[in-house]
């Protein structure tokens, strides 16, 4: 049930981001919508690895094979952690290209 609600929240963010990318006019607003879409996708990938009633993947006591394994999946969290840093870099690059574009073709006070 928790996984389902997590994924519903993530998909609502993704849909709002797609709507913003398709309908807005100025580049700054499109980049904001793209960042919202990226946040939603990160949340969806992290929600795939969630199991109900489990704890964070940090070893604090011994774990055995036969007993219950009380951990969430560590692999999607690693992918999300890499993706967040990459998102900041690509956003900065896109904003730099926006500034360059605005400086070369002045588009009547709009960006």
């Amino acid at each position: 049930m928790e996984t389902f609600s997590f994924s519903i929240c993530a998909f609502s963010l993704i849909l709002v981001g797609i709507f913003g990318v398709l309908t807005r006019k100025d580049i700054i607003r499109i980049l904001l919508a793209l960042n919202i879409l990226e946040t939603g996708i990160n949340m969806l990938v992290a929600a795939v690895g969630y199991f109900k009633g489990s704890s964070a993947p940090i070893l604090t006591s011994n774990i055995t094979r036969d007993g219950f394994l009380p951990f969430v999946d560590p692999l999607p969290q690693a992918l999300v952690l890499a993706s967040i840093v990459i998102g900041a870099g690509t956003t900065a690059m896109a904003l730099a290209i926006t500034l360059k574009h605005y400086r070369t073709h002045k588009t009547e006070g709009k960006a």
């Binding site: 997590f6 990160n42 704890s55 993947p57 999300v80 967040i84 956003t91």
Partner: peptide
């Protein structure tokens, strides 16, 4: 992310998404 027990991703998102990205947009 904290509710999902993804503490590493929560730390990275809190420092990058809400400080760095906002500051870069403002400077632009």
């Amino acid at each position: 992310f904290i509710l999902m027990k993804a503490y590493d991703a929560a730390l990275a998102e809190a420092s990058i998404g809400s400080v760095l990205t906002t500051a870069i947009f403002f400077w632009t």
